[in-house]
């Protein structure tokens, strides 16, 4: 019979599997490490972590996943969370954890490094880098003079079928929340309906919007400012530019990615050290150079082509007020967007 001879791989396979389980069981995070749940990209954060470990001798265990998935995970973990620090992509997730009473206040000296509007008034989280809402456009299809001066200009029928947006995206939701705070629900709904009437193309990701603009599939899209810079890495001559609405308001909202320490943290000192490290000059410069996000501490130089934070017509509003996402979702639904 051929059968016995036909599977010489089987013992080898079992051996590999058996050995590997020992290796894997040993991989459970041990107690001495600072555990960071990170909703930001691994490629961006890894060099920072490596340098932090080298400089401080603190070992970091880091878990990368989507910001909202990690926020939900932290809530489910509750009192048994192994995490010390939550590094979130947007302020909304931190606000949600704050409401869930999962975060612990940070020391004042850390908070004060960042302007008050980029941190929690209760001091439970602090912004690390800033991200502005812009309209990315294809300069070959829209002349600079034809750019919309206001958000409302986009509701003009001339924009029919030309715009892209990512309505599921947290940054878009924050923007709509800001619009509600600025204008009220009725006006916001009217705007959403106005845009919806122009049949915008919905995208899953901001980066896809930039790519679609550059490919000429759409003429413009509502995104965060730094996706353009990401796209330029692989294609420096990309046919896309950022337009900051000159009109002061939600159209130019600056939101933040930020960090907080969990109440369950067993490594407070190390966690604070980590945040201090993120808010020092080098790390902030790193963010500015690598991702073209806005540094939030004073006296960090920006890449040459980035519009300075002070010149953006950002609305004067407290980021903590961007929490009422339930109301925002309901408006988006009413507008028939999903």
């Amino acid at each position: 019979m051929k059968r016995a001879a036909s599977r010489p791989w089987l013992p080898a396979l079992l051996a590999v599997a058996g050995l590997s389980v020992f290796a894997a069981i040993g991989m459970k995070a041990d107690d001495g490490r600072l555990v960071v749940y990170c909703g930001r990209g691994e490629e961006l954060i890894r060099p920072l972590i490596e340098r932090f470990e080298q400089e401080t001798g603190i070992d970091v265990s880091i878990r990368y996943a989507g910001t909202s998935e990690l926020a939900a995970t932290l809530m489910e973990e509750g009192a048994n969370s192994p995490a010390d620090v939550f590094f979130a992509q947007d302020a909304g997730a931190l606000g949600a954890l704050h409401r869930h009473n999962a975060l612990t206040p940070l020391p004042a000296d850390l908070l004060e490094r960042v302007p008050a509007r980029f941190r929690s008034p209760d001091g439970t989280w602090v912004g690390v880098s800033g991200r502005a809402r812009v309209l990315v456009y294809n300069p070959e299809r829209i002349a600079e003079t034809d750019l919309p001066p206001t958000l409302d200009a986009l509701t003009d029928p001339s924009w029919k079928g030309r715009i892209g947006w990512a309505p599921e995206n947290a940054s878009f939701q924050s923007f709509v929340t800001a619009l509600r705070i600025q204008r009220g629900d009725a006006a916001t709904l009217a705007w959403l309906k106005g845009i919806q009437a122009n049949k915008p193309r919905p995208f899953a990701k901001n980066s896809a919007i930039v790519a679609a603009v550059a490919a000429g599939e759409i003429d413009a899209g509502l995104v965060n400012h730094y996706y353009l810079y990401g796209a330029r890495r692989t294609n420096p001559d990309i046919s896309a530019r950022n337009h900051y609405f000159p009109e002061p308001g939600a159209g130019s909202l600056v939101n933040v990615a930020g960090v907080g320490i969990l109440k369950t943290s067993r490594h407070r000192a190390e966690a604070e050290r980590f945040i201090r490290y993120l808010l020092d000059h080098r790390a902030q410069t790193y963010f500015a150079n690598e991702t073209a996000e806005y540094p939030l501490i004073a006296e960090v130089s920006l890449p040459a082509d980035l519009k300075p934070l002070e010149t953006i017509a950002t609305p004067d509003l407290d980021l903590n007020r961007l929490e009422d996402l339930e109301g925002t979702l309901s408006l988006i639904r009413q507008a028939g967007i999903f």
Binding site: S68, M75, G92, Q173, L325, E326, L329
Partner: peptide, 9 residues
């Protein structure tokens, strides 16, 4: 959309 936007479980 619920998870992503409202952190509601």
């Amino acid at each position: 959309v619920y998870y992503r936007t409202s952190f509601d479980r």
